[in-house]
C-alpha cells in the first residue's frame, strides 16, 4: 500500500543519503561523521582534509560515545633492528647523532601505510596533522590482527577525557612542535605533559605488568606521557599507559629521535634490554 511504499522510499532515500555523504567526503573526522550523519558503526570511512585530500581510515564509533579517528600506528617489525628499515617512528637511517630528529615523522606531514595494515606495519594518515582534536585513545593490538577484531583482541585500550589536546594545538603534530622529539633537546627533567587516562580494557596493574620488573619501579601507571627524555638525552615520543618517575625511559616509551646512546635506537627503543619475554631486569 502507499504507506509501505512511502516508508520504503524514505528508508531507501536515507540509505542513499548516507552513501552519498560517505562518498562526497564532507567530514574531516569520525566525530563529525557521527555527529552530523549519526553513523554508529565501527569500520572504514572516507574523510577529507582542509585542502581537499581524501583518505580512508578506521572509525571507532563505540568507545565512550564513539567518534574516534585512527590517525597512526606504531608497529615494531623487529626489536632487534636498531633504527633500521621499518623504524619510521624513530629513524631508518641508523643510530646517528648528526640526525637528531631521525625520520622526523612525529612532526611532519609525511604519511605511510594503510588502515587495514595498521597492525602489520607503521601507519600515518593526514588526520594526524589535519584534525583538531580534544582527546586521544590508544589501543595495543597484537600484530597482524584484522580490523574487525582489533577491539576484542587488544591487550590494552584507554582514552583521555580532559581535552588536553586543545591546550597543545589540537593534535600530536602541533604538540610535538612544542616538545620536539629530538636527541639532545634537553634533559630528563624536560619531559612533556603526562595526561591521566580512563581504561576501556585493562587497568593500572595489567599496564604495570606489560613492562619489565625494573621498569615497574620507575613509572606510575594510569597516564599517557609525551616527549620523555632519558639519562643519555635521547628523546622518546609516547610512554603509553605510564608516567615516568625515573630516567630510563628507553625501556618503556616508544618512538623517538635519531640517536640513542649507546645502542637502543628504534621505535620500541630498548624494550629488549634484558632479552624479550623473560620478566627479568628491564624486559
Amino acid at each position: 500500500d502507499s504507506e509501505t511504499f512511502q516508508n520504503r522510499t524514505r528508508t531507501n532515500f536515507e540509505h542513499l543519503e548516507r552513501l552519498r555523504n560517505r562518498s562526497t567526503y564532507v567530514a574531516r573526522s569520525c566525530k563529525e561523521i557521527r555527529d552530523r550523519y549519526g553513523d554508529e558503526e565501527d569500520g572504514l570511512y572516507y574523510l577529507t582534509t582542509a585542502n581537499g585530500m581524501v583518505y580512508q581510515t578506521f572509525c571507532d564509533m563505540t568507545t565512550a560515545g564513539g567518534g574516534w579517528t585512527l590517525v597512526a600506528s606504531v608497529h615494531e617489525n623487529s626489536v632487534y633492528g636498531k633504527c633500521t628499515v621499518g623504524d619510521r617512528w624513530s629513524s631508518q637511517q641508523g643510530n646517528n647523532a648528526d640526525l637528531p630528529d631521525g625520520d622526523g615523522n612525529w612532526s611532519n606531514r609525511n604519511m605511510f601505510g594503510t588502515p587495514e595494515g595498521a597492525t602489520s606495519d607503521d601507519f600515518k594518515n593526514p588526520g594526524y596533522y589535519d584534525i583538531a582534536a580534544e582527546d586521544m585513545s590508544v589501543w595495543h593490538v597484537p600484530n597482524n590482527f584484522p580490523l574487525e577484531h582489533w577491539s576484542l583482541a587488544a591487550i590494552l585500550r584507554y582514552h583521555t577525557n580532559n581535552r588536553f589536546l586543545s591546550l597543545y594545538g589540537g593534535n600530536l603534530f602541533q604538540l610535538f612542535k612544542h616538545y620536539p622529539v629530538r636527541y639532545n633537546i634537553g634533559s630528563c627533567s624536560n619531559r612533556g605533559p603526562a595526561i591521566p587516562i580512563v581504561y576501556d580494557h585493562g587497568d593500572r596493574e595489567s599496564t604495570r605488568m606489560f613492562y619489565g620488573p625494573r621498569s615497574r619501579n620507575e613509572f606510575e601507571p594510569g597516564f599517557i606521557t609525551f616527549r620523555a627524555i632519558n639519562n643519555e638525552r635521547a628523546a622518546m615520543a609516547i610512554c603509553s599507559g605510564v608516567k615516568p618517575t625515573g630516567c630510563h625511559t628507553e625501556h618503556y616509551c616508544i618512538g623517538g629521535g635519531g640517536y640513542f646512546d649507546p645502542r637502543q635506537c628504534g621505535d620500541f627503543p630498548s624494550f629488549d634490554w634484558d632479552r624479550l619475554g623473560h620478566d627479568q631486569g628491564w624486559s
Binding site: G67, V71, S137, H140, I155
Partner: peptide
Amino acid sequence: ASKEMTEAAVLLFYR
C-alpha cells in the same frame, strides 16, 4: 618489556 607488548602495534586515535 613483555613479549605481548613488543608484539602489539600501538594504534593512536583522536577525538
